[in-house]
Amino acid sequence: MKIAFVGKGGSGKTTLAALFARHLAASTPAAPLLAFDADINQHLAAALGMPEDEAVLLPALGEHLTEIKEYLRGSNPRISSAAAMVKTTPPGRGSRLLRVAESNPLYDRLVRDVGGVRLAVTGAFAVEDLGVACYHSKVGTVELLLNHFVDEPGEYVVVDMTAGADAFASGLFTRFDLTVLVCEPTLRSTRVYRQYVDYARDFDVRLAVVGNKVDDDADVTFLREQVGDDLLTWIGRSAFIKAAERGRILPITDLEPANAAALCAVRTALDASVKNWGRYTAQAVEFHLRNAIAWANDRAGEDLADQIDPEFVLGPATPTLSVR
């Protein structure tokens, strides 16, 4: 099951993504889990307990894009080369697919255990990128990976997304079973919620709001007035979270009971999501065609619509290539 945490900058989405990942990792038995930091600020590793000076040394997905493409392409005859793959390229017969819990060369090189959570990071926006690159090119690596992911009930992919509505620069926003909008009880924060709802309305994106930094009943009432039934649960002010923000990572079992119950509510909502692999595959195709027409055909020098395998539907029964 794939879950994204989004929200206004400073709303606490990275904190919530880290808490939820730690909650899953500490469950009994521990849930198969993989987390991605797809935020330009790259703070998820620190939120999971890794010192900042070590977090900056994590291998970056964006720096291994050619290797990732070569692996995923496998023997798919519709993809002429790794260079012809773009962030929206969908899998087809012959492609290599990814599972949450497996051994493969990509995980060996790019995934690290951070505080009991298997984590991959897109990489920070570097000095050499300034003025010449777009961060979406890095986030696009996550979209490409998720297009090739086969996850089943009881397995989890947790993604800390870019702030605001940046995810709508591609089809990445359709890649999740549940999108959690982290909202503070403020008008600015709930405006991001409304923007997300407006953009996602036509794409069957399942949304839930988790209130954060909630002090009292008045805050809950305000959130209900702004987001209605989309309010799933909320996180109250927390000494546990404050300690983490000051660099002291406590055991997840020390989280306040009410806040731990909120994480359980998120997991219950995620587990209740009904997967529709046909729709998931069709949306990947739709956004690939949009990007091909808009820019990717010109960049690749070929018609990338030819990469679409019309008889392919991603899902648990889809055969995968063996690792070589």
Results as ranks from 00 to 15, higher is better:
residue 54 E to M: 09
residue 169 A to C: 07
residue 60 A to L: 04
residue 59 P to W: 12
residue 192 V to T: 14
residue 35 A to R: 03
residue 16 L to R: 12
residue 150 V to C: 03
residue 65 L to K: 15
residue 75 S to Q: 13
residue 65 L to T: 15
residue 21 A to M: 04
residue 188 R to N: 05
residue 288 H to Q: 14
residue 56 V to I: 15
residue 40 I to C: 02
residue 240 F to E: 14
residue 201 R to Q: 15
residue 304 L to G: 04
residue 280 Y to V: 09
residue 283 Q to L: 15
residue 113 D to N: 15
residue 127 V to F: 15
residue 35 A to W: 01
residue 243 A to S: 09
residue 233 T to I: 04
residue 79 I to S: 03
residue 175 R to A: 12
residue 51 P to H: 14
residue 40 I to E: 10
residue 63 E to H: 13
residue 2 K to F: 11
residue 144 L to T: 14
residue 260 A to K: 08
residue 303 D to V: 04
residue 263 L to W: 05
residue 207 L to V: 13
residue 143 E to T: 11
residue 113 D to M: 10
residue 318 T to D: 01
residue 322 S to Y: 03
residue 50 M to E: 03
residue 29 P to E: 12
residue 194 R to K: 11
residue 305 A to K: 13
residue 324 R to H: 02
residue 272 A to V: 05
residue 126 A to K: 15
residue 30 A to P: 14
residue 30 A to Y: 07
residue 279 R to V: 14
residue 161 M to L: 12
residue 217 D to H: 11
residue 278 G to V: 14
residue 211 G to E: 01
residue 109 R to T: 04
residue 77 P to H: 03
residue 66 T to V: 15
residue 173 F to I: 10
residue 146 L to A: 09
residue 97 L to S: 00
residue 76 N to A: 07
residue 267 R to I: 00
residue 238 S to L: 06
residue 40 I to N: 00
